[in-house]
Design a protein around this nucleic acid. Structure first.
Length: 988
RNA sequence: GGGCAGGUGGCGGAACUGGUAUACGCGUAGCGCUUAGGACGCUAUCCCGAAAGGGUUGAGGGUUCGAGUCCCUCCCUGCCCACCA
């Protein structure tokens, strides 16, 4: 009854002050209030086929109580709700049952909505949003394009976490102990081209912003650790004989020896004593291969110690040169090169070029082949690296160039491949003198790099193979017993590194205790200072040199560069699945990657026949030719749509912004409304989102803030996390355990008020609790007693007997006591009792108010129970006002019962629109207190005393007590401690 | 191994900046009301003891007139991270 009425009257609608276009204006009720809004947020649910469960109930009830309370306090409250409706389950359901996800999603939403309303949730339904609604994801795509335009969304080839069951790539944050966060399947590594969001660019801001947030320290620390900032240095350990005597550097199409990284690289190599040739290739704007090759062969002497480097088309020239050589060179480095006529940035004149290669000849002359691929290359397609490898072999090295297509002035990564050196990251550059060996991660490119020089190459290969085949479980087992576990590794024989400080030659190892994904994948080992290095050194009988430290600044200045390293990785942002927001980009053969123009947003998901992921790394969208094939919006030429979709985290990264302005068609939300509502004042949610949603949405928000689209630097001012609800057996609720308690069933049996109150009464909000089905009887009885007290009072007062609308049959016999109506009362005795009740009520007002504000709902309910016990004892002296106050305190917790009784007492306006009571300090003041009398700190007696009693009076009063005689008759107290209004302690 | 949160009756849990440990509820027992009841009401319920009294907050030590609360050592549980140089 009340749920319908509340919904009909829209009592939970948050009104926008901005309609008056004046967000700072006085709002809400109460004349002393200024800018009083409360934005209360809960994590919007995923509408699954199973419906909402206890896990949803906890934060939602907490948020509901808090918003009802805040509304009564006079705040303009926004407590919105929506649906995080993209995601795998809907898609998997579609695969199985051939039902379009939008159909099942709509059904599930309707069901969840019914549930939420039956729980008595006071959401503002007029602001409902759904992430799968094109009107919503239009803006998700729009925000993505802002990232893209800012260079914070990029496509790169790299190893990513791949879930074989869900057949999709995962973000780092979605991998839990090597398993898929969603389905629990073991995650494998897969090399794929993926879209990334450059969250690492915001690492420092995300860290900095935490400081001023009113979040629990534990949550902040977790985010800090996840971002994992380390301040240290990059140091280069050159390899003995790592510098070749001769270098030949070949520039690319339209290039010259004075462009890009060439001058810098030449200088660096010459500084190391090498001879460097950087020929100017003829006709570089209209290159004819044989002219260029002839020029190189004519002017440069090649020998077995030559390193040949070609950038871009220079790489093609290099290959052609190799076809002609008589003897092999030492090494060939191909930077951003290719084997097909596939320049993307210019109509390249191909007629003059010969795209047939003598692969065998090149292979035999090239020496070690390094194929350097800039993963951000926008000129040469990424797959060209594979083309080269297929043609002539060699190793692909991925790196992020300082400018796309390696066009920056300095590209140290290229230098590193010219001069054989190992770069390490360390937080202790001051211990450099004590570095007695170097350790590489097994996947470190160096091993391939110096293959020919490593004498025990077979042994090394075997070790690498072994570590790669180690299962996740084995790795976990190894790492969980770190201290006891023997470290493994293999020395790379035949090569040595040079400690830049001592100039000593030191051995190089590979070992799996060094991670390929952190820092540079290589460390300098200082066994004297590092426990892990010491363990390793002891096992392999390596020297442990206790050398003096140098200053960090000096070490960095002389031997390297300072470096701040984060554990945080860029966010893998593409998924090879159907049911997600299409990434709004277009691949054009001429223009490269082009953003879908804003006017064409949203890029709607097309209808498909098959939802199955292909498993090849392409989304099912790739199969829809008529959707994929499109004209390039820039040049009008043939182009293809990006077929990857966004991860589920996309829609939830900004939904709280949309709530401020859910119907807006021109922008994702108007600035004035954002200014009106932001930031979210209280955000209720689970611990499991600490390093996922909470981090992602802070990142989006900070980006939007930098672009001046949102008015605050942080989205959520306060975070209130909650513990999980376990089954009665203390285990996680699950179908297989059969310990699931459904909120819907509880409502059927006990009603929504009992469900809500018991959930809150179970324990502290942040604690893990078990659902004990019997325990709900406690709050259920409490509510029935409230009912009896209230209706007994009303029927007595009005002389009518009222129907009993409770589902549970109540005792039909008349209540044992006799109520006295307001008007029938008189006399000093009842007045005294009335005052006493006032005292108790006002104490409860104080307690309940404070407890709600600190989210100690369990003790707030306990205070209500104590109050009810007292009111029942004094029920003859209850007046209407007492009951009204009580109902107000009860209203946030048990909104239905409170409303029923409230209306029965003759009110016209809902209790939820009434004003939260203030306690009167005068009424709370106690006149007496229990003076505790202690001997040597042990309680021996107690006596009632007046508040404010002095020490000497208290002493006299205490000594008078009968029981004190045995202690104080013979001994004079050595010392007396008096705590005013509390205790007196005699030390004897 | 690291970080965070904890360890209080038969159970869920209270206890403000050190000041009556066990609030509130569940369960249990007795009584009342009942044809009966797993409904309702009343009473009792940390342990030992007939009582006086004594003991008790994971274990042990310390500071203090006084410690569940502060300090040290150790044990255990949950969550998160995990060889991050």
């Amino acid at each position: 009854k009340w749920q319908k009425k509340w919904l009909g009257e829209g009592i939970y609608k948050a009104s926008d002050a901005s309609k008056k276009n004046n967000p700072d204006a006085q709002r809400g009720r109460g004349s002393d209030l200024k800018r009083r809004k409360k934005y209360v947020l809960i994590e919007f649910p995923y509408p699954s086929g199973e419906g909402l469960h206890m896990g949803h109930l906890r934060p939602y009830v907490a948020g509901d109580v808090y918003s009802r309370y805040s509304r009564m306090k006079g705040y303009e409250v926004m407590y919105p709700i929506g649906w995080d409706a993209f995601g795998l389950p809907a898609e998997n359901y579609a695969i199985k049952n051939k039902v379009h996800p939008s159909v099942s999603t709509a059904k599930n939403i309707a069901n969840a909505k019914r549930q939420l309303q039956s729980w008595g949730m006071g959401f503002d339904w007029s602001r409902e949003v759904t992430t799968t609604d094109p009107n919503y994801y239009k803006w998700t795509q729009w925000i993505f394009l802002q990232f893209f335009k800012a260079g914070l969304a990029y496509e790169a080839t790299g190893k990513i976490n791949w879930c074989p069951k869900d057949k999709t790539g995962l973000a780092n944050e979605e991998v839990i102990n090597g398993h898929c966060e969603r389905c629990g399947t073991k995650v494998v590594e897969k090399e794929m081209k993926q879209w990334y969001l450059r969250i690492t660019a915001y690492a420092e801001k995300l860290l900095e912003g935490l400081k001023k947030l009113d979040w629990p320290q534990g949550i902040k620390t977790q985010q800090e650790n996840w971002i994992g900032k380390s301040v240290g240095a990059l140091l280069d350990f050159e390899i003995k004989d790592g510098v070749a005597p001769t270098y030949v550097l070949l520039h690319g199409y339209t290039g010259s020896p004075s462009a890009n990284f060439f001058p810098w690289l030449k200088k660096e190599l010459e500084r190391r004593g090498a001879k460097v040739y950087t020929p100017k290739l003829p006709n570089s704007d209209d290159p004819r291969v044989y002219d260029q090759v002839a020029e190189v062969l004519k002017s440069i002497p090649f020998n077995k110690n030559t390193v040949l480097l070609g950038h871009s088309l220079g790489g093609v020239v290099a290959m052609k040169v190799l076809e002609q050589l008589k003897k092999p060179v030492r090494k060939t480095i191909l930077v951003s090169s290719f084997t097909q006529n596939r320049f993307l940035d210019d109509p390249f004149r191909s007629y003059a070029f010969d795209w047939k290669f003598n692969a065998e000849k090149i292979k035999s002359n090239a020496g070690a082949i390094h194929i350097l691929r800039d993963t951000t290359d926008d000129t040469v397609p990424q797959f060209q690296a594979e083309n080269i490898k297929n043609l002539i072999g060699g190793t692909i090295f991925n790196f992020v160039a300082n400018a796309p297509h390696a066009c920056a002035e300095k590209e140290p990564e290229i230098l590193r491949h010219c001069v054989d050196s190992i770069q390490v990251f360390t937080t202790r550059p001051d211990t450099l003198f004590g570095a007695t060996y170097v350790v590489l991660a097994p996947e470190h490119p160096f091993v391939e790099n110096l293959k020919s020089q490593i004498s025990n190459h077979k042994e090394v290969e075997a070790y690498i193979k072994k570590t790669k085949s180690k299962s996740e479980d084995e790795r976990l087992a190894a790492s969980s017993t770190i201290s006891g576990q023997e470290k493994t590794g293999v020395e790379l024989k035949g090569v040595k590194a040079i400690n830049p400080a001592t100039k000593e030659e030191i051995p190089i190892f590979i070992a799996d205790y060094v991670l390929g994904t952190y820092g540079t994948g290589a460390i300098m080992a200082v066994p004297a200072h590092d426990e892990r290095d010491r363990q390793f050194a002891e096992k392999f009988k390596l020297p442990i040199a206790n050398k003096p430290l140098i200053s960090i600044a000096e070490a960095i200045k002389k031997f390297g560069q300072s470096k701040i390293q984060y554990k945080l990785r860029d966010w893998v942002f593409s998924r090879q699945r159907y049911w997600g927001e299409p990434i709004p980009l277009i691949h054009c053969a001429n223009c490269g990657v082009v953003a879908v123009p804003e006017k064409d947003l949203p890029v709607k998901l097309p209808k498909v026949k098959k939802y199955e992921p292909t498993g090849t790394g392409e989304s099912p969208l790739a199969a829809i030719k008529e959707w994929v094939n499109i004209k390039c919006p820039q040049c009008g030429g043939k182009a293809l749509r990006e077929t990857n979709t966004m991860p589920q985290w996309a829609g939830s990264s900004w939904y709280y912004l949309r709530y401020a302005d859910p119907k807006n068609k021109k922008e994702f939300a108007s600035k004035s409304l954002l200014k009106c509502w932001l930031p979210v004042d209280v955000y209720f949610g689970g611990m499991e989102h600490t390093t996922l949603h909470l981090l992602y949405s802070r990142f989006w928000h900070k980006f939007l803030y930098d672009k001046k689209y949102v008015p605050t630097s942080e989205p959520y001012a306060k975070r209130v996390p909650h513990g999980i609800i376990l089954g009665a057996d203390g285990e996680k609720m699950s179908k297989s355990r059969g310990n699931i308690v459904s909120p819907d069933e509880i409502i059927k049996e006990f009603g929504a008020d009992a469900l809500r109150m018991y959930e809150l009464f179970l324990g502290p909000h942040e604690a893990t609790v078990s659902w004990n089905s019997r325990g709900i009887l406690g709050v259920s009885r409490f509510l029935e007693r409230v009912w009896k007290l209230g209706f007994g009072f009303v029927s007595r007062k009005d002389g009518v007997s009222l129907a009993q609308p409770l589902a549970r049959p109540l005792d039909s016999r008349p209540h044992s006591s006799n109520f006295v109506g307001d008007h029938a009362r008189s006399g000093s005795e009842t007045l005294f009792l009335e005052t006493n009740l006032n005292h108790l009520l006002h104490k409860a007002i104080k307690k309940v108010t404070e407890d709600i504000e600190s989210f100690h709902y369990n003790t707030a309910i306990s205070a209500l129970m104590i109050l009810l016990n007292e009111m029942e004892k004094n029920e003859k002296s209850i007046i209407t006002n007492h009951l009204l106050l009580f109902l107000k305190l009860l209203a946030p917790f048990a909104p239905h019962l409170a409303e029923e009784l409230w209306m029965a007492l003759g009110n016209k306006e809902s209790v939820h629109q009434s004003e939260w009571p203030k306690f009167d300090p005068k009424l709370i003041k106690e006149e007496t207190f229990t003076l505790i009398i202690q001997i040597n700190g042990k309680v021996r007696d107690q006596v009632e005393a007046k508040i404010g009693i002095s020490e000497s009076e208290a002493g006299k009063l205490a000594i008078k007590q009968e029981r004190m005689k045995q202690y104080l008759a013979e001994n004079k107290p050595k010392k007396v401690i008096f705590v005013p209004n509390r205790l007196i302690n005699f030390v004897i």
